[in-house]
Computed example of a mutant assay.
Amino acid sequence: MIEMKKFLLLIIIFTLQSCIEEKQKTIGKKEPQKITETKPISEEADITSFCNFAVIVDKDGYVNVREKESANSKIIGKIKSGEAVFIFEDLDTDWLNISFDNNRKSGYIHRSRIKYIKDLEKIPSVDTHDNKAVFHLNDIDINIKTGDFDYESNKKYFSETDFPITKYKGREMWGTDGTIPKSYYQSITVKIGNQKIEIPKKDIEDLFNLNNGYTECYYDKVNNSIYIHLSNSDGAGSYVALFKIENDIYKGRQVEIPF
C-alpha cells in the first residue's frame, strides 16, 4: 500500500514538472496580432459637420430675418442673396436661428432660403502641419502659414500688460479668452491660375490660437466663389471664421462665437 502511494506521488510530481516546463517555454512569446480592417471615416463624422455657415439663396434677391420662428413674426433685418450667415444649431425645424450683421444681431430665417457651405465642393487638403495648411483643386491653390506668437516683441500692441488681455492693436482679440496668444496667422494666400489674392493682414492679425487641422476650403462653381473656413481655439475662447473670394476678388470675413 505504501509503495502504491509513493508511485502515485511520483506521477503527480512528474506531471507538475512537465506543466511548469511547458509554461516556461511560452514565456516571452507574443500572441500573433490580429489584423483588423480599418474602415474609412464616414462623411457624417468628418470635420465638415462643424461648418455651420450658409449662403442665402432667394429668388427675390434677399431674405427677411424674423424675430421669432414664424412667417408672421416681426421683420428685424434683411440679408441679400449670396451673403453668408452663421447658423447656431441645425435642429430638425423649418426655422433656423442665425447670427448676422457681424455677430451683432440674431434672428430666424426659413430653411428653404439657405444653402450650407459644407455642401459645396470641398477643396482637398494636401498638406497640414502645425505651421501650415495647403489646399488644392484644379487651378486653385490655398496656402495658409502660421507660427508661434512672440509675446515679448508684440507686448506694446496689447491693451493691458496684466490679465485679462482683451485687445490687440486696438481691436478685439479672438481665441485667447484673455490669456497670452500661442499662435497666429502669418499669411493666407489664394492662387487661382496666375491670379494671386492675399487675405489682408488686418483681417488675420487678431485671430489667435489656431487649429490648422480643422481648416476647410470650399468652391462654389456656379458663383465662382471660394470659402475658407477656420475653427480655432477651444473652450471659452472658441471661434469660427469665414473668408470669401468671389470672381477673384476678396469680399471680406465673418467671425462668430459658435455657441
Rank of each mutant, 00 (worst) to 15 (best):
N154M: 06
D177F: 03
F135Q: 04
I199F: 04
D150A: 07
S153Q: 08
H129Y: 12
S153K: 12
F86G: 00
K182S: 15
H136R: 09
D94A: 12
D119Q: 09
N102K: 13
T215C: 03
R104K: 15
D148M: 07
T161E: 15
E160V: 01
N194E: 11
D127E: 14
P181A: 05
D119M: 06
I192W: 05
N212S: 07
T146S: 12
W95E: 04
L207Y: 09
S112K: 13
Q186W: 00
A84Y: 04
F158L: 10
F88S: 01
K202N: 13
N131M: 11
D90N: 15
T179E: 14
K145G: 00
K105S: 12
V126M: 02
Y185H: 06
S99C: 00
S159I: 08
P181I: 04
T176P: 11
N131P: 02
N212L: 05
D94S: 15
G175E: 07
T128Y: 00
I204Y: 03
S159L: 05
K182D: 13
V190Y: 05
D130F: 15
I123D: 06
R171N: 11
I188V: 15
E160Q: 15
G107K: 03
L91I: 04
I188F: 09
L207H: 09
I87S: 01
A84C: 12
K132A: 05
S183H: 00
K156G: 07
E83M: 10
D141H: 12
I192V: 07
D90L: 14
I180H: 09
L91N: 03
I109R: 03
R111M: 04
I117Q: 11
T166P: 03
I123A: 09
I188T: 10
I114D: 08
S153T: 13
N209F: 11
T215M: 13
H136A: 11
E121W: 04
K202R: 05
P181N: 06
N103W: 01
F163V: 10
F158N: 09
R113N: 13
K105L: 10
Y219S: 00
K191L: 06
I123L: 06
Y219H: 08
G193F: 01
S125A: 15
E121P: 00
D206W: 05
E152I: 15
G147C: 03
E198T: 09
E160G: 11
H129A: 14
F86K: 00
C217F: 02
N194I: 07
I197L: 08
N154D: 09
L96A: 02
K182L: 14
A84R: 04
M173Q: 07
N211D: 06
S106D: 10
E172K: 14
E152M: 13
K191V: 13
Y168S: 07
D150E: 09
V126H: 01
G213H: 12
I114F: 06
F86R: 00
D177G: 02
